[in-house]
């Protein structure tokens, strides 16, 4: 009785951590610049394909992770500087059209280069084993995933709460015009934040392959979950995203285990009820 519950909690928590990595960047950039970036899932997919490609070249799994982060971050900032910044002052609809168009292009590009089949991921043997504690099996990979996500959260919250750059990011989220009026270069602050957020999505994408697989539809499948996390957590809130991601991860795992007929639908019920309770999200301010 207890063991399955602990197992479900553990799996759900690990899944939530993955959702957090995938979505935290979008939450911050949406909250900061009101920029609706539906191509966020594409940067996650870029990270995933970078990891797969490098492993195909014989790179060890761990070495591919920083590359997934870097490549996704650099590509995203390229798009930000050349394309996205042109539509910051445009309507939401125009932003949606541009970024969803890019998301479709990324799906087609992935299918062209890699085909539509699932990509294999070759994890080191020790990551594929289980640790047994009090009779319950814990996947080493999921433990690793949780550790990475917690470390990232710690670094992110630390950087945001205790550095001047973090204060500038928060100031720009609070009041962009005032931040500019005091001499904060909001454009650059945003570009760096955008790159970091997309980089984390790329890292999340690489880590996600083992759990959920990878094919070109990854972009849209995870875009939906990412948007749910951001909406439930509240725009611009890292803590909100973390809590929302864990809640959704656990309810998804619990739904699939205890109410298989509802299955993956439970996550939407949770979203609807949370948003009815707090329309601007758990930690939302507007």
């Amino acid at each position: 009785m207890i063991a399955p519950a602990v197992g479900v909690l553990f799996d759900g928590f690990a899944y939530g951590m993955l959702l957090f990595l995938l979505s935290v960047g979008l939450s911050v950039t949406l909250g900061m610049m009101n920029f609706v970036n539906l191509a966020h899932g594409s940067f996650a997919m870029v990270g995933a394909y970078v990891a797969v490609s490098l492993m195909g070249l014989g790179w060890p799994f761990f070495a591919t992770l920083p590359c997934a982060f870097l490549v996704a971050g650099v590509i995203s900032v390229g798009f930000e500087r050349t394309l996205f910044r042109r539509v910051y002052r445009a309507s939401d609809l125009q932003q949606v059209l541009l970024t969803i168009g890019l998301a479709f292009i990324s799906v087609a590009a992935a299918a062209w280069f890699y085909g539509t089949m699932q990509q294999p991921v070759r994890l080191p043997v020790y990551l594929r084993t289980y640790a047994t504690f009090m009779g319950i099996n814990f996947s080493i990979y999921r433990l690793f995933l949780i550790a990475v996500a917690l470390a990232v959260t710690g670094l992110l919250v630390g950087a945001l709460d205790y550095t001047r750059f973090g204060a500038q990011v928060r100031a720009a989220v609070d009041n962009q015009r005032m931040a500019q009026g005091l001499g904060v270069d909001v454009d650059t602050v945003f570009a760096i934040t955008f790159a970091l957020g997309s980089g984390l999505a790329g890292l999340g994408g690489a880590l996600a392959i083992e759990i959920v697989g990878l094919d070109p539809n990854f972009t849209f499948t995870y875009l939906i979950y990412v948007l749910i996390v951001v909406a439930v957590g509240g725009l611009g809130s890292i803590r909100g995203s973390l809590l929302a991601a864990i809640l959704l991860g656990v309810s998804d795992a619990a739904g699939k285990y205890y109410v298989p007929t509802l299955g993956a639908f439970l996550i939407y019920l949770v979203m609807v009820s949370l948003l009815l309770w707090r329309p601007s999200g758990l930690f939302g301010r507007r």
Binding site: A167, Q168, R170, D174, N175, A179, L182, G183, V184
Partner: peptide, 15 residues
């Protein structure tokens, strides 16, 4: 237009 999510001291050091 005080930055609400910054402390008083952070408001002073941010820029």
């Amino acid at each position: 237009e005080i930055f609400a999510s910054l402390t008083v001291e952070e408001n002073l050091t941010v820029a």
